[in-house]
Computed example of a mutant assay.
Amino acid sequence: MVNFNGTLHNASSNLLSLENRGYAYGDALFETIKVVHGKILFWEDHYFRLMASMRILRMEIPMNFTMEFIESEILKTVDANQLLKATARVRMNVHRVEGGKYTPSSNDIGYNILTERLASDFFDLNTDAYTVELFKDFYVAPGLLSTLKSNNRNINILGSIFAKENNFENCLLLNTDKTVVEALNGNLFLVKDRVIKTPPLSEGCLKGIMRKQIMELVEKLEGYVLEETSISPFELQKADELFITNCIVGIQPITKYRKKEFTAEVSKLLIEKLNTKIRLS
């Protein structure tokens, strides 16, 4: 079952027209959310990121789009798919309503919510081989729009095709200044000695929800220093550890970049603290 503007429909229903602005112009945003046994993880952060993103894209936020209303719509959809006692990946799409060309006829919005069952309730550390490479065919242009989770994901799609064709698990994206921004599906952290680095939003990386959680955990991590700073490609092979963060997997350690192999000690420590934080919240 899918939720389309508050009404549940069979997943096979034809709900989107060819004039949908998310399809026609990429005029849409989305949030990817993990729901564990009816509990939406980091819901407040997701909600405020969505509201801020809608304002940036000049979308009209409906009066009823409160945190409580959207939470109830998400859980209604999870329940309709019999996932309240399981773990689900939820994607909420928000698009501007049909009408106009580049200039919209209206800034009103519509939304839809989809669910997918996940195997694990909490975040497990995957230590399988995970090799990455730089994707250098196209570059991220730093700016406010690059921090949004919009439907304009061409560079992520092309990078994913490149990774698949060359037997990499993931790729790292560069910005137009040729510094490392993020992975195809999450934010990047680099560990060298006792310093943990992640690119600042000004470099063009996504304003990730899990990025925020990990940064908060690192700041409380005894003996480590957090730095929001540029990461050059040359630093990657000198690092002790590299890992990727997103809301579905939590932390994904990178095991190899070119000839350099990495440990996962900090990743293991942080994922334990992340799961503890979730249990206590």
Rank of each mutant, 00 (worst) to 15 (best):
F4P: 02
F4W: 15
S12L: 06
L15C: 08
N20D: 15
R21P: 02
Y23R: 02
D27M: 03
L29C: 12
L29I: 08
G38P: 13
K39N: 08
Y47E: 09
M51W: 07
T66S: 15
S72F: 00
N81W: 04
K85E: 15
H95M: 14
V97C: 06
G99P: 07
Y102I: 11
P104W: 10
S105D: 12
I109D: 09
G110E: 12
Y111K: 00
E116M: 08
F122W: 13
F123Q: 02
N126M: 13
E133Y: 01
D137C: 02
Y139L: 14
A141W: 10
P142R: 04
K149W: 14
K149D: 07
N152L: 14
R153W: 12
N170W: 05
L172Y: 08
D177V: 03
K178L: 07
V180K: 04
E182V: 07
L190A: 07
V191S: 04
V191K: 06
K192M: 06
G204C: 04
M210W: 01
K212W: 03
Q213W: 01
Q213H: 12
I214K: 02
L217R: 06
L217F: 05
K220H: 08
V225P: 00
V225E: 14
L226T: 11
E227T: 02
Q237P: 00
L242T: 06
L242N: 02
I244G: 01
C247H: 01
I248G: 00
P253R: 08
I254C: 04
T255I: 14
E261I: 14
E261L: 05
T263C: 05
K268W: 03
L269V: 01
L269Q: 13
E272F: 02
E272C: 06
T276I: 05
K277L: 14
